[in-house]
Design a protein around this nucleic acid. Structure first.
Length: 376
RNA sequence: GGAGAGGUAGCGAAGUGGCUAAACGCGGUUGACUGUAACUCAAUUCCUUCGGGUUCGGCAGUUCGAAUCUGCCCCUCUCCA
């Protein structure tokens, strides 16, 4: 069994951004990278082959959702999540900590763990740091997450502090419960809301626990761009250089570039796939909503600078038609395109870092795409 | 030829005297979406110079007031000859 470790290969002299390699039991991937989200062990509408062809190195799945359906034992029986979904590359599972945020109106937090009211049948479910790790041990992804609380923004200092301290205790408990340390890398998650001293304390205490990697959580929950960037800075500064850094839930173009500049190695986001299903595409010229009437007879490709399956073979007019007719092919092609757009952004970023010109690169991308507050 | 049912906004369809420029659905247009309860959600959809104007097959009535009541006309569908 190959060991998990991160290897920094270059630090950009212009920006401090770093490029590297992430070695996992299911293969080595280059960083910084973008990871598409496949919550239910599927990136919606895409086969694993298509996700891979779009340039993705790692696919995410979700502990809470797979725990409910089909259940971790079914996945374990299949031989693990990769076997189950026929994907040979590296995978990562989120712990269920995000559901503490996204399903806030149907859960109760206590020291021991979180009681959820199932979104499927209303039944009462209990998730603890230990259960989350046990489930993730059975799911078998290469990278797994500590069970945390992703807090909303804004949150009071007092709440952010209490929650962060509890997340630290949960991280310790998760580490102690982890049964597959040899082949599954458990990441600790930095919380602390927007508060500098809380981020610092959390990052330092997690670093002392010596995780194989660290995540930054609690971002992209409604805060403004400058606040997000500060949250990242306040966290990254105290993380060990030799370990990978994963910024959770970020996938808008400018957010990704700002994060990479601050030393982030990995990012994931539902944004490219969700907005693709809703008809929005990320392009080198900025954001395009394929539903718009102006594309009715536009027989050009979605993004002339893109090399994805969608852009190589199909026109805007056809994609608009497919989307208006609610054809699944529209969701599939646009998802392929948006994922490819972000994996290519990461590729280009890596090259710019190696050439010590990341700041120039960032500027080029943002001016070309007519970047605005939304980040496209 | 006879009997019955019906004609409401782009389409389907409520409404049977004032609270109705007219529910609701579809279609159309425009937005939103950041560790996925999301092929979802929101806004808008007669015209307007934003004061108002013109609507519920057509025309003529009743009434303070009509998509709603009356008369005639036009059209559609079903059944029987």
């Amino acid at each position: 069994m190959k060991k998990f470790y991160y290897e920094c290969t270059h630090v950009c002299k212009q920006s401090g951004a770093r490029a590297g390699l992430l070695h996992t039991p299911h293969g080595t991937v280059e960083t910084p990278m973008f990871m598409p989200v496949g919550t239910l062990a599927t990136v919606k509408f895409l086969s694993p082959e298509e996700v891979k062809a779009a340039g993705a190195g790692v696919i995410l799945a979700n502990t809470y959702h797979l725990w409910l359906r089909p259940g971790e034992d079914v996945v374990a029986l299949a031989g693990g999540v990769q076997q189950f979904m026929n994907y040979q590359g590296p995978m990562l599972t989120d712990s269920g900590g995000f559901q503490v945020f996204s399903l806030a109106d149907r859960r109760k937090i206590q020291e021991e763990g979180v009681t959820f009211k199932s979104h499927l049948d209303g039944s009462k479910l209990f998730m603890s740091p230990e259960i989350s790790i046990q489930v993730q041990n059975k799911l078998g992804a290469d990278i797994i997450m500590s069970f945390d609380e992703c807090i909303p923004y804004p949150a009071t200092y007092e709440y952010a502090k209490q929650s962060m301290e509890r997340t630290l205790r949960w991280a310790r408990r998760g580490l102690d419960a982890h049964q597959r340390k040899e082949d599954q890398a458990l990441f600790g998650i930095v919380q602390g809301g927007e508060y500098q001293d809380l981020r610092e304390r959390c990052a330092k205490e997690l670093a002392a626990m010596d995780f194989p990697g660290y995540s930054i959580g609690g971002t992209s929950v409604g805060e403004d761009k400058a606040t997000m960037q500060k949250m990242i800075e306040d966290s990254v500064r105290f993380l060990p250089f030799e370990k990978p850094r994963y910024l959770m839930g970020v996938g808008a173009v400018n957010d990704m570039l700002e994060a990479i500049e601050r030393g982030i190695d990995m990012m994931d986001c539902v944004l490219p796939t969700r907005i693709a299903r809703h008809g929005t595409c990320m392009t080198s010229q900025g954001r395009i909503n394929i539903k718009k009437k102006e594309y009715e007879t536009d027989f050009s490709s979605l993004d002339p600078l893109c090399d994805c399956e969608c852009c190589r073979h199909y026109t805007r007019a056809y994609l608009r038609h497919l989307h208006r007719c609610n054809e699944g092919l529209a969701s599939r092609l646009l998802s392929i395109h948006n994922i490819r757009f972000l994996t290519r952004l990461a590729e280009d970023a890596r090259r710019a870092i190696r050439q010590d010109r990341f700041l120039d690169f960032k500027k080029e991308v943002l001016s070309r795409s007519g970047f605005d507050e939304r980040g496209f």
